[in-house]
């Protein structure tokens, strides 16, 4: 089953659209897709042209393509458990919330909370991702728990906050406090990062660029060879009785 959703231009393009029903599972079950536009609930067709071609007998046979301006469309792929979603442009917040299977590919950039609390499946974002990429929810103790997220560009602040499982690969830089409260999983940052792994208790993080303003409570363990490169190996966060592993190519303290 191939589903093509083309969002039309709107009179007020700033009003957010909440579209948690845009998942392969909902189309497979032939549900009426309702979305929220501000405080109104409307059928998806009121805001987008919808074309469905072919039949699907399992979730793996459902492929969704999203076109048009989807930069304010939130919660696409929430609780997704299989199939694929491809987004031609940018996507709004909470894309891939709680997903457990399937694949989301974003050809543009993603707003905040990409892959929040995801448990499985794959997300590939070709552009940048906003704050709280692969992280958790307010007050939550666990963020991303499984699956993989790859961002070709850079990410905002608090990336991978509370992460407790899965793999994240960020090709660009991160903002402040990447991997804060990290409890598990593996995060690789190919660019620079600042105040990385604050208060971590477990898990592994690699920073191939420079770790700026390192948290001053990590214990130096020596130099190690990883991937053919030399990294400073730290363990911590000691302030939190943490036993996480942080590997950085270069680092500075705010002294």
């Amino acid at each position: 089953m191939n589903v093509t959703i083309t969002f039309r231009n709107r009179t007020n393009p700033f009003i957010p659209i909440e579209a948690e029903m845009i998942t392969p599972d909902a189309f497979l079950q032939d549900k009426e897709i309702l979305v929220g536009e501000g405080n109104r609930t409307v059928p998806l067709e009121a805001l987008a042209d919808l074309v469905i071609e072919g039949d699907g007998f399992s979730i793996e046979e459902v492929d969704i393509l999203i076109r048009g301006d989807s930069s304010r469309v939130k919660r696409v792929g929430e609780y997704m458990n299989g199939g694929t979603i491809t987004i031609e442009g940018d996507i709004g917040m909470h894309c891939g919330n709680f997903m457990s299977g399937g694949r989301i590919e974003i050809l543009g950039s993603a707003e905040g909370w990409l892959g929040r609390e995801m448990q499985g499946g794959e997300i590939l974002c070709h552009g940048d991702a906003g704050d709280y990429c692969a992280s958790g929810y307010r007050g939550g103790r666990r963020g991303m728990r499984g699956g993989s997220v790859e961002v070709i560009g850079s990410v905002g602040d608090f990336a991978c906050e509370h992460i407790s499982g899965g793999e994240v690969l960020i090709h660009g830089n991160t903002g402040d406090y990447a991997c804060a409260e990290m409890k598990g999983g593996t995060v690789t940052i190919l660019g620079d990062s600042s105040r990385v792994c604050a208060n971590m208790s477990a898990g592994t993080c690699y920073v191939y660029g420079s770790a700026e303003e390192m948290i001053p409570t990590f214990e130096k363990k020596g130099i190690v060879d990883h991937d053919g490169l030399l990294f400073h190996h730290f363990m911590g966060d000691v302030a939190n009785r943490g036993r996480g592993h942080l590997y950085v190519a270069r680092y500075t303290y705010l002294q």
Binding site: A198, P216, T217, E219, D237, V238, A239, N240, Q255
Partner: peptide, 16 residues
């Protein structure tokens, strides 16, 4: 963070 480590008795990891 530095004060937390010190209260735990881990002054050794804190820079000058």
């Amino acid at each position: 963070s530095a004060l937390r480590a010190m209260v735990r008795g881990r002054d050794d990891v804190v820079p000058d």
